[in-house]
Protein backbone atom coordinates (compact mmCIF):
# COMPACT_ATOMS: atom_id res chain seq x y z
CA UNK A 1 0.00 0.00 0.00
CA UNK A 2 2.91 2.30 0.83
CA UNK A 3 4.36 1.56 -2.58
CA UNK A 4 1.06 2.47 -4.19
CA UNK A 5 0.93 5.79 -2.31
CA UNK A 6 4.50 6.50 -3.26
CA UNK A 7 3.80 5.85 -6.92
CA UNK A 8 0.80 8.18 -6.75
CA UNK A 9 3.05 10.87 -5.31
CA UNK A 10 5.70 10.30 -7.95
CA UNK A 11 3.10 10.36 -10.72
CA UNK A 12 1.81 13.62 -9.26
CA UNK A 13 5.28 15.19 -9.25
CA UNK A 14 5.85 14.12 -12.85
CA UNK A 15 2.55 15.63 -13.91
CA UNK A 16 3.49 18.96 -12.35
CA UNK A 17 6.90 18.97 -14.01
CA UNK A 18 5.62 18.02 -17.46
CA UNK A 19 3.08 20.81 -17.33
CA UNK A 20 5.85 23.39 -17.07
CA UNK A 21 8.12 22.07 -19.80
CA UNK A 22 8.56 24.12 -22.98
CA UNK A 23 10.48 22.01 -25.44
CA UNK A 24 12.17 22.42 -28.78
CA UNK A 25 12.63 19.87 -31.54
CA UNK A 26 16.13 19.91 -32.93
CA UNK A 27 17.94 18.54 -35.98
CA UNK A 28 21.42 18.60 -37.46
CA UNK A 29 22.42 22.15 -38.62
CA UNK A 30 22.69 20.96 -42.25
CA UNK A 31 19.02 19.88 -42.37
CA UNK A 32 17.14 21.99 -44.92
CA UNK A 33 14.03 19.86 -45.50
CA UNK A 34 10.74 21.12 -44.12
CA UNK A 35 9.55 18.77 -41.42
CA UNK A 36 6.04 19.01 -40.00
CA UNK A 37 4.78 17.96 -36.59
CA UNK A 38 2.98 15.09 -38.38
CA UNK A 39 6.31 13.94 -39.85
CA UNK A 40 7.82 14.02 -36.36
CA UNK A 41 4.95 11.96 -35.00
CA UNK A 42 5.43 9.40 -37.79
CA UNK A 43 9.17 9.16 -37.16
CA UNK A 44 8.71 8.70 -33.39
CA UNK A 45 6.03 6.00 -33.77
CA UNK A 46 7.93 3.93 -36.31
CA UNK A 47 5.68 4.83 -39.25
CA UNK A 48 8.45 6.59 -41.13
CA UNK A 49 12.19 6.06 -41.28
CA UNK A 50 13.29 9.23 -43.11
CA UNK A 51 15.02 10.46 -39.93
CA UNK A 52 16.66 8.74 -36.98
CA UNK A 53 14.78 9.79 -33.85
CA UNK A 54 16.44 9.89 -30.43
CA UNK A 55 14.55 9.93 -27.16
CA UNK A 56 15.11 10.96 -23.58
CA UNK A 57 14.72 8.14 -21.05
CA UNK A 58 11.49 7.69 -19.07
CA UNK A 59 13.02 9.23 -15.96
CA UNK A 60 13.33 12.60 -17.70
CA UNK A 61 10.11 14.66 -17.37
CA UNK A 62 10.68 16.21 -20.82
CA UNK A 63 9.96 12.78 -22.29
CA UNK A 64 6.40 12.74 -20.97
CA UNK A 65 5.80 16.27 -22.21
CA UNK A 66 7.09 15.37 -25.67
CA UNK A 67 4.94 12.22 -25.92
CA UNK A 68 1.84 14.13 -24.92
CA UNK A 69 2.34 17.40 -26.79
CA UNK A 70 4.17 16.35 -29.94
CA UNK A 71 2.85 12.81 -30.39
CA UNK A 72 -0.58 13.37 -28.85
CA UNK A 73 -0.51 10.23 -26.70
CA UNK A 74 0.54 9.42 -23.18
CA UNK A 75 3.95 7.87 -22.56
CA UNK A 76 2.37 4.56 -21.63
CA UNK A 77 0.38 4.51 -24.88
CA UNK A 78 3.58 5.16 -26.83
CA UNK A 79 5.36 2.44 -24.83
CA UNK A 80 2.53 -0.01 -25.51
CA UNK A 81 2.70 0.86 -29.21
CA UNK A 82 6.45 0.17 -29.34
CA UNK A 83 6.18 -3.05 -27.35
CA UNK A 84 3.81 -4.33 -30.03
CA UNK A 85 6.39 -3.55 -32.75
CA UNK A 86 9.35 -4.90 -30.76
CA UNK A 87 7.76 -8.22 -29.86
CA UNK A 88 6.47 -8.89 -33.37
CA UNK A 89 9.86 -8.16 -34.91
CA UNK A 90 8.54 -5.15 -36.82
CA UNK A 91 10.62 -2.37 -35.35
CA UNK A 92 12.82 -1.14 -32.54
CA UNK A 93 12.21 1.99 -30.49
CA UNK A 94 14.36 5.13 -30.79
CA UNK A 95 17.72 5.25 -29.04
CA UNK A 96 17.39 6.67 -25.53
CA UNK A 97 19.65 9.07 -23.68
CA UNK A 98 19.49 10.02 -20.01
CA UNK A 99 20.38 13.69 -20.46
CA UNK A 100 19.57 16.48 -22.88
CA UNK A 101 23.31 17.16 -23.33
CA UNK A 102 23.70 13.67 -24.78
CA UNK A 103 20.75 14.25 -27.12
CA UNK A 104 22.26 17.55 -28.34
CA UNK A 105 25.61 15.91 -28.82
CA UNK A 106 24.13 13.02 -30.83
CA UNK A 107 21.99 15.26 -33.04
CA UNK A 108 24.91 17.63 -33.65
CA UNK A 109 27.01 14.74 -34.89
CA UNK A 110 24.50 12.74 -36.92
CA UNK A 111 23.18 14.33 -40.09
CA UNK A 112 19.78 12.63 -40.27
CA UNK A 113 18.92 12.50 -36.59
CA UNK A 114 16.18 14.35 -34.72
CA UNK A 115 15.76 15.00 -31.01
CA UNK A 116 14.12 17.29 -28.47
CA UNK A 117 15.29 19.18 -25.40
CA UNK A 118 14.01 21.77 -22.95
CA UNK A 119 14.13 25.19 -24.63
CA UNK A 120 16.57 26.48 -21.98
CA UNK A 121 19.13 23.78 -22.86
CA UNK A 122 19.36 24.32 -26.61
CA UNK A 123 22.78 25.14 -28.06
CA UNK A 124 24.06 26.46 -31.40
CA UNK A 125 25.37 23.01 -32.38
CA UNK A 126 21.87 22.05 -33.55
CA UNK A 127 19.07 23.63 -35.56
CA UNK A 128 15.72 24.31 -33.88
CA UNK A 129 12.84 23.02 -35.99
CA UNK A 130 9.79 23.63 -33.82
CA UNK A 131 8.90 24.88 -30.37
CA UNK A 132 6.26 22.83 -28.63
CA UNK A 133 4.43 24.63 -25.85
Amino acid sequence: MKLLKLSFLLAGCLAVQTAQADLVIVVHPSMNESITIDDISRVYTGRSSVLEPVNLSDANPIRGAFDEKALGRTSSQIKAHWSKLVFTGKGSPPKEFASEEEVLNYVANNEFSIGYVDSSKVSSSVKVLHTVK
Binding site: K79, A80, H81, S83, K84, F87, T88
Partner: peptide, 10 residues
Protein backbone atom coordinates in the same frame (compact mmCIF):
# COMPACT_ATOMS: atom_id res chain seq x y z
CA UNK B 1 -2.68 -12.47 -32.48
CA UNK B 2 0.93 -11.57 -33.11
CA UNK B 3 1.38 -10.12 -29.63
CA UNK B 4 -1.47 -11.73 -27.71
CA UNK B 5 0.89 -12.72 -24.89
CA UNK B 6 2.29 -9.19 -24.49
CA UNK B 7 -0.29 -7.92 -22.01
CA UNK B 8 1.40 -4.52 -21.74
CA UNK B 9 0.70 -3.83 -25.43
CA UNK B 10 -3.11 -3.81 -25.11
Amino acid sequence: SEYMEVGFAY
